[in-house]
């Protein structure tokens, strides 16, 4: 059974593309067949974060227009043979992305992949609504900061109203992924805590990705953080989140803090 996920947030710059790449690589690393789709027509970046920018020949719009077949547009990752990218086009014509076209592409991908992860553009316009349109579940990426939380609330409302599932009277499962979290600042009362964000958005938590230089380092070299430094705190947080997506029960830790190291030691002994 394939799962279609949308990684969305409303606000830009909170870590949608980073999270798409990191989770896609984590799921593919564990053996699943994964495709990540860039829906940010005109401003594509998932290719760059995955280090595939020089290998793009055809894109999503080409497939929708019938210029290329789907297999021609899919780029296989050089490190993980299970991981594929369907890039966005750099054309400025956003109308090229049609609802029927997206529906057909997703249906075709469902036959070949276990996970189809749609990287949404920021905002609530066409690109964003089409990215979420055929999703079974959504990952709402939020920073512990007022404007990001407000926009996430808005996006959650749209997920409940404008997706194909919502229109059929079904549910789109929503998972909150808190990124750029700084446990020290939260403890000092300088940043919203995890509990604050959960209470305000009342959405189940998928993971907590700590603020880390590793994320920038990974994007600099074009490798998902989960592959570039799998032992780093953000990578471990993404691996945990990927396992939760698969339905595994994993204790929620803020990776990289002292508490988590102790808990990890005890967890290992117990296992």
């Amino acid at each position: 059974m394939s799962q279609v996920l949308v990684v969305t947030s409303g606000k830009g710059g909170v870590g949608k593309t980073t999270s798409t790449a990191a989770l896609g690589a984590a799921l593919a690393h564990d053996g699943a067949k994964v495709v990540v789709i860039d829906f940010d027509v005109g401003l594509r970046n998932l290719d760059l974060v995955l280090g595939a920018e020089r290998r793009v020949v055809f894109d999503l719009i080409n497939v929708i227009n019938g210029v290329a077949k789907l297999p021609q547009a899919l780029i296989r990752d050089k490190r993980l043979e299970n991981l594929h990218l369907l890039p966005a086009s750099q054309t400025r014509d956003k109308d090229a992305l049609t609802q029927d076209g997206v529906e057909k592409v997703i249906a075709e991908l469902r036959e070949k992949f276990d996970w189809i992860i749609c990287d949404s553009p920021a905002g609530i316009e066409r690109g964003a609504t089409l990215a979420m349109r055929y999703a079974d579940a959504a990952i709402v990426v939020t920073n512990p900061e007022v404007s990001s939380v407000r926009d996430s609330d808005r996006i959650i409302g749209i997920l409940d109203a404008k997706t194909a599932r919502a229109e059929r009277g079904e549910r789109v499962d929503k998972h909150l992924l808190i990124t750029r979290y700084n446990a020290t600042a939260a403890a000092r009362g300088e940043m919203l805590t995890i509990d604050d964000v959960l209470e305000i958005l009342s959405c189940p938590l998928l993971g907590i990705v700590p603020e880390s230089k590793e994320v920038l380092r990974a994007s600099n070299v074009g490798t998902p953080v989960t592959l570039n430094n799998p032992q780093s705190a953000p990578a471990r947080a993404y691996f945990d989140a990927a396992r939760r997506l698969k339905g595994e029960q994993i204790p929620m830790l803020v990776q990289g803090t002292t508490a988590s190291i102790f808990t990890k030691l005890f967890a290992r002994k117990a296992a």
């Binding site: 900061e145 007022v146 600042a185 939260a186 000092r188 009362g189 300088e190 940043m191 919203l192 805590t193 604050d196 305000i200």
Partner: peptide, 8 residues
């Protein structure tokens, strides 16, 4: 003492 409670 921080500003987070205000944000919340």
């Amino acid at each position: 003492s921080g500003s987070a409670p205000v944000a919340r």
